[in-house]
Design a protein around this nucleic acid. Structure first.
Lengths: 201, 201
DNA sequence: CGGGTTTTGGACTTGCGGGTCCAGATCTGC
DNA sequence: GCAGATCTGGACCCGCAAGTCCAAAACCCG
């Protein structure tokens, strides 16, 4: 059933998802009409409903998945390699740079508030993303503990949760205020705290 | 012009705003139809457009302002009284309790993602809220510095920014994952850090 | 009271946009 | 190269909800 897609079909489907994602990033979920996506991807109603029988909802779900994956990909290879303080710094810089560049166009913002409520599956996608994200950070912390760079008595999961919260809040505040200060402050102070813990412990 | 409202008119207007706010909290911005609000507030189309000539957009803006104000009010008197560690703890508990109780129904969630983009004014409302919020926290930190409970070399504004980011992210994660852990972790670790700073400094 | 203003109710219009349908083009494997 | 499947285009339908309009009720003040 899912395996009834030609090479060409697959390409078209991908084009639609990518186009819709771009459109949504640019103008917000609720401002994007199906027709906009069609125009921007040189496709027709027929195609869209051919690949997404459940219409907009299904498309939005696919976009959400696409964007969620992208969020982590954008942080690689730094995120999977938090094995030294310079590496942490590089990751931190990548995050700041990335969000600074994208500015107000957060792919998840709308998808959480908008899709998250209506589609039951979108919630799961975001939750999954957050969980993976946090776990990656936790792995980094544990690694640093193994090398003695972070105190052993630090609760890695708890610290990762706090750091992730800081990031999310920082991005949220970037979206609403347009300033990157909060993200930087949250990242720097939290990381600084992890480093300080090693010395005192 | 703005002063053409009878006592009764004022009451009706307020009733519409409050009703719309409740409705939005309950079911999300984009799920709320004007008719729903009318039904729930025992009012008619005529009244709604009488008090909000610009229709839905204007109403949403009024709701946003109403909810934004409420967010800070809900933290009082704790937020304006961060003058001792027990007071900070009380504020922290209030926050956790409040968001735990309200669960998924965040008044600002939709308003940021939804209204924030379309209405230029909504952006300003959220920004204003965040700014006031952060300032209140900063005042608390400075007060603690004046009593020596927090190290003098802490940048109050920066610390407040980080704390606020942690809170926002914690709430965001509560919304998507349904767990309060992140909010607690962010609050506790950040506050703990402020306390620790005093001892080492 | 009485004239002017504000308030209220609800029927009606309108446009937008998601979803349907189907005919024809294109591909795929044998 | 042909039979069956997949892909594509776009005209059409249709419901929904925002917004309009106006007449009647309630209210305010001299």
């Amino acid at each position: 059933m899912t395996r009834a897609l030609t090479r060409k079909g697959e390409a078209t489907r991908a084009r639609i998802v990518a186009g819709a994602a771009a459109e949504i990033r640019e103008r917000g979920v609720d401002e994007v009409r199906l027709e906009d996506v069609l125009a921007h991807t040189r496709t027709s109603k027929g195609q869209l409903f051919h690949y997404f029988p459940d219409g907009k909802e299904e498309l939005l779900l696919a976009v959400a998945q696409h964007e969620a994956d992208q969020v982590l990909v954008d942080q690689e290879p730094m995120l999977s390699n938090l094995t030294s303080w310079p590496a942490w710094q590089a990751w931190r810089d990548r995050l700041v740079e990335r969000y600074l560049a994208q500015g107000v166009k957060c792919p998840l913002n709308g998808l959480l508030g908008q899709t998250g409520r209506r589609a039951p599956g979108a919630q799961a996608i975001v939750t999954g993303l957050m969980w993976r994200w946090q776990e990656k950070i936790a792995v980094g912390i544990r690694h640093m503990q193994s090398t003695g760079d972070i105190a052993a008595d630090v609760d890695a999961d708890r610290a990762a949760a706090a750091l992730l919260a800081g990031i999310q809040g920082g991005v949220l505040l970037l979206l609403s205020t347009g300033r990157i200060d909060h993200l930087e402050a949250a990242l720097d102070l939290t990381i600084e705290r992890l480093r300080a813990g090693a010395r005192t412990a």
